[in-house]
Design a protein around this nucleic acid. Structure first.
Lengths: 263, 263
DNA sequence: CGACTAGTTGAGGCCAGTCAATGTTGGTGG
DNA sequence: CCACCAACATTGACTGGCCTCAACTAGTCG
């Protein structure tokens, strides 16, 4: 009845000693083959725009590549923060969990995205990252990031940019949650996905939703029934085409216009 | 009829050459007396926990102190990003502005808070910062911050912490906007204010709202009438006492319980 | 095949928005 | 000092969008 999000709804023990899925974190697959310089998403990542010498130093930051299977948890709230994670392939969601059991999907992350930024402040992760499909991420130990950032201004700036972009991303989500109607939220969500897929070289007009209706709803501050209804309505109005998780954007302009209606 | 937020609702020209209120930014009051080491809010700021030698270096970052009068704009969207701003006294709000005219109060900031973090990514500010009362802020040129961060690991870590805390702040706001009922949002808002005032040495049970009902509503994703009604209701229920902008928290536990109700 | 999860669709209710009238407060100028 | 005005705030009546509850379908996996 409830989706995976709600499967572990409450009372996340702080600083769990052994995490149920921790084995996933131990599979240190290929220590010697982890090289940003040949990574398919390197220009979306922290090594963006660096000269060869600096990029080589950045290569040395990445110690571990982690394989996750669908449903695996990369980190959970309270887990001590030691590294940022760059997604190499697949996709993950991040879930916020309040003490009272309230939870919300806070983000949908795809290759090139950086995860775990919220943990820097308190040395502890504040949310849970769960793989939506089989995925691979690179662990970037944060002490190494800081050390390298002190030596290379260009890399330092990339780190600051990444942090700032996460802030910007959340800002637009706040605007969405605070000011938009349900149909506008959904349209904005679809357009955002489209744009991000495009930036990664995938089709911007047809893609597969990796999240359930309930997860999408949680992300947008809506209920799953509302998401389902609105997808149907948008289809009926000819703006999109939906078949389960396959979505096709038919009238991008109309979707944009819908989002843009101030009232 | 409309509050200050809506006074400049649309079409913010990007990279304005001369800003209407720019004179406010030129009042370079006391170049030689700007010293973090004697700042009343230094332990809330970037110089938190630094040894004397490092703190001295940080003092050198701050070049300018800016006086703002109520209603003055510190920066607006599109203004080129050059510095972060630390609030010394007074308070400011930050306002998000979308192209379509949609706007939302994104934050309420008090002494010790750092402003402008969202501008790092694109070298351009993404929101507008407006003084809610006469205020003073310190300008911290970002290139100097980056330079100093490269030399002092402890300071570098403070910068990262500040960025990460901004992310955490927004996260909890997202949770509020995505999952809470109107009365819960308002209660959470009041408790947040209370806690932050306390952290700054003010009374945690009685304080003055610096924002109008409309601004509070915008911040919480509600209409001003709803805010007004709910303040009245909370007062009637004996949880708070309101008289215009003066608020007194009477039953903190009950407020917390209200926020904590998952449904 | 049965059990389970994910998704769709309908009926009805409630919370918060909208519209509107009125009250209150604070700053300004005569 | 007080009258005036504009901005801010309160309260009521009504409306509508989204949630809740519920029934049903489709696909998946042991």
């Amino acid at each position: 009845m409830e989706a995976a999000v709600a499967a572990t709804p409450i009372a996340i023990p702080l600083r769990t000693t052994i995490m149920p899925r921790a084995r996933a974190m131990l599979r240190d697959v290929s220590r010697n083959q982890v090289l940003c310089s040949i990574c398919p998403v390197r220009d979306k990542c922290l090594s963006f725009g660096l000269d060869a010498a600096t990029a080589k130093k950045v290569d040395e930051i990445v110690t571990t590549r982690i394989r996750l299977r669908k449903g695996d948890t990369l980190y959970r709230p309270g887990a001590s923060f030691t590294a940022l994670y760059a997604i190499r392939s697949g996709s993950l969601k991040t879930v916020l969990l309040a003490e009272d059991g309230r939870d919300q999907v806070a983000g949908y992350h795809m290759p090139g995205d950086l995860l775990g930024l919220d943990g820097i402040g308190n040395e502890v992760h504040e949310c849970q990252a769960i793989a939506l499909e089989d995925s691979e991420v690179c662990a970037l130990p944060f002490d190494r990031i800081e050390r390298t950032a002190r030596d290379f201004a260009a890399f330092q700036h990339n780190v600051h940019k990444a942090l700032s972009q996460e802030i910007a991303r959340q800002r637009s989500l706040m605007l969405l949650l605070g000011t938009m109607r349900a149909d506008q939220r959904l349209a904005a969500f679809l357009l955002d996905l489209s744009q991000r897929y495009q930036a990664r070289g995938y089709s911007s007009s047809e893609f597969i939703l990796r999240m359930t209706r309930e997860e999408i709803g949680s992300y947008l501050g809506l209920k799953l029934e509302t998401v389902s209804r609105l997808l149907s309505r948008l289809q009926q109005e000819g703006l999109i085409q939906v078949q389960g998780r396959v979505v096709k954007l038919l009238e991008r302009a109309a979707l944009k216009q819908l989002v843009g209606q101030s009232n």
